[in-house]
Design a protein around this nucleic acid. Structure first.
Length: 567
RNA sequence: AGGGGUGUCGCCAAGUUGGUAAGGCACAAGGUUUUGAUCCUUGCAUGCGUUGGUUCGAGUCCAGCCACCCCUGCCA
């Protein structure tokens, strides 16, 4: 476990006794889309930090903008977190369940002269805000009396005003070089139903206002978020510091005594980027809505539900996140790192099987007509505890067309005319004749087998190549979906390259039908992973696979040093 | 032009009082192997954005410069 700056901060806090040894984090998604692997980094960080320090981690839906949110997303987020292997502390939290408290705190700010109702239109407000280099101007409503502000704000809540006519603003500093401090809006009027609170509220708090108070209510000690919120930290602190601390404590879930009640600290870290994919919810949503992929859980998507369907395991994703680390520098992680993580896990855990993607018939002419035998193959080369499976062997087989070359390139170890190759777990065969169709394509290989080579190497010669095969009669007809990266450019977000959708990889999905799988696969359950020997890791599609038409998704290929040599 | 950040090997990333650059991925070369897989061994930054300075000694301290990222939603 490599160290990082957040672990350092927590160690220091633990050492100084800042929170009396307490570590409380939270994962605060907005339910406006599916979780992706970038969220996994945050989940692992937040839940992992709590776990490592005997602390707790809440799941809190940051649901302050009902227009974009829905219960469907809440459900998927909960499922994904559990699938990843984490469990939140206590009940699920919602920022919306703090609406009443949030309203009371707003009243408190107004009474202290720290907030006012502004009646500028959104357009005017933008104009008054100034820009990056010039300061803003104070709103003409900035000096309304406390009494008037109270009256107006209460009427806002009562639903007397239409959307956008008024807003509640924090009274900070219109000349601040930090634009977030130029009297930020903390409440807006929105006459829309909320997925949790229904039609109860015509006003909704803004993120900056709701988030810090929600943290304080939940007695969060370390509020971990991504770098883009760095500029918001002064506002986060301002709001909490301008509220009466004992009233915050009173509204909190009461874990600590008054003396121990410490305000949460926001700490930012760099978000995860991976090459050959996009990581913004907006773009992922666009891919779904415009039909470039088949839903949020399309196996090509970097969403957790997509990765799951692709065959990624929770452990592989957790290991990946650990490997990538936490820092404050923006970076782009090579997708090879993710692939390494899943290969590492699946190599250890998945049983081996054979499946021929592009069947080429092989007839063993010296194998007795009508005869057959049953071979026993181990399910894993190292893990003997995984047992063995049976495989029928006979005169007619299928091998993969990719394992035969009529004119073999240098160093070729597979089958070619006159050459010998080992059938995995079975005999050594020699290719003696090629049967071709009208166009000259090989359709069948007539071979001989050496019946002295079952389980032993041939005498006096070395057979270096080993290829996979299935029995022709008993093989299962299956569909195999070959997935590749969704984008063909390393950085789809690169503005110079035009719209990110222009570099979608046209070959990101290849559906192969008529593939031949060994019969032991018949009982494979949805989501089960296998290594199809010499091909890669595949899983049974959890949604589309049926007993009479099994569907396997390619999770990732095996490392392929031959591909490097041969090209 | 203002504010906030970041720059250590092709990609991530450690480096906590200045003492002479962890680890992972990738890559390369060997070895084992009935998966050209796995596994094992070895190699891979006299260099830490850059230029100066302080010091016996600097990735770590100081100053200047350069590059890149974020900020002008009543989004989060």
């Amino acid at each position: 476990m490599t160290s990082n700056f957040i672990r350092h901060i927590i160690e220091q806090d633990l050492h100084s006794g800042k929170h009396a040894g307490r570590v409380q984090t939270r994962f605060p998604p907005e339910p406006n889309g599916f979780l992706h692997i970038g969220h996994a980094k945050s989940i692992c960080l937040n839940f992992g930090t709590a776990q490592a320090n005997d602390g707790r981690c809440n799941l809190r839906f940051d649901d302050t903008n009902p227009e974009k949110e829905s219960q469907e997303f809440i459900n998927s987020i909960m499922a994904d977190i559990q699938w990843l292997g984490f469990s939140w502390s206590g009940e699920i939290r919602y920022a919306s369940s703090y609406f009443e408290a949030l309203f009371e705190f707003a009243l408190q700010l107004i009474r202290a002269g720290k907030a006012y109702v502004c009646s500028l239109t959104p357009e005017q407000a933008r104009e008054y805000r100034g820009n990056l280099t010039s300061p803003g101007r104070e709103s003409p409503y900035r000096n309304r009396s406390i009494k008037e502000n109270l009256d107006l704000f209460i009427r806002m809540r009562a639903g007397e005003f239409s959307d956008g006519t008024h807003s509640l603003r924090a009274r900070i500093d219109m000349a601040s070089p930090n634009i977030n401090m130029r009297d930020p809006v903390i409440y807006r009027i929105r006459h829309v139903e909320h997925h949790q609170t229904g039609a109860q509220w015509p006003i909704y708090p803004m993120y900056d206002y709701a988030h810090c108070i929600s943290d304080a209510i939940e007695c969060i000690t370390h509020s971990l978020c991504t770098l883009e919120f760095e500029d918001h930290r002064p506002l986060y602190d301002w709001i909490l510091q301008n509220l009466d601390k004992s009233s915050l404590h009173a509204a909190s879930d009461g874990v600590t005594t008054e003396a121990e009640y410490v305000l949460p600290r926001q700490i930012e870290f760099a978000r995860l980027n991976i090459n050959y994919t996009v990581m913004s919810k907006r773009k992922l949503k666009e891919l779904v809505i415009q039909g470039f992929v088949n839903g949020w859980d399309d196996p090509r998507m970097p969403t957790l539900s997509g990765l799951r369907r692709r065959g990624y395991t929770p452990a592989s994703i957790r290991n990946f996140c650990e490997r990538v680390g936490i820092s404050r520098s923006e970076s782009v992680v090579d997708v090879g790192m993710l692939e390494h993580s899943i290969r590492e896990d699946l190599d250890r855990s998945s049983p081996r099987a054979m499946c021929v993607l592009r069947p080429l018939k092989v007839t063993l002419r010296n194998y007795p007509q009508g005869a057959s035998e049953t071979l026993i193959l181990p399910c894993h080369p190292k893990e003997t505890s995984m047992g063995a499976r049976e495989l029928p062997f006979g005169r007619e087989l299928f091998i993969d067309a990719a394992d035969f070359e009529e004119v073999p390139p240098p160093q070729y170890k597979r089958l070619s005319p006159g050459a010998e190759v080992r059938l995995r777990g079975a005999y050594v065969i020699r290719c003696e004749e090629i049967v071709k169709d009208a166009s000259g394509q090989p359709v069948e290989l007539i071979c001989s087998y050496d019946n002295a080579t079952l389980g032993v190497n041939p005498q006096g010669r070395k057979v270096a190549g080993v290829i996979h095969w299935v029995p022709a009669g008993e093989a299962l007809d299956v569909e195999v979906r070959i997935y590749d990266r969704l984008f063909s450019k390393e950085n789809p977000d690169d503005k110079n390259g035009g719209d990110y959708k222009e570099c979608l990889n046209p070959d990101s999905l290849l559906v192969m039908t008529g593939c031949k799988a060994e019969p032991s696969l018949r009982t494979a359950l949805p989501e089960a992973s296998f290594q199809f020997e010499r091909e890669g890791y595949f899983c049974v599609d959890r949604l589309d696979s049926t007993a009479d038409r099994m569907v396997f998704n390619r999770t990732v290929t095996l490392r392929d040093s031959w591909a490097k040599i041969s090209s």
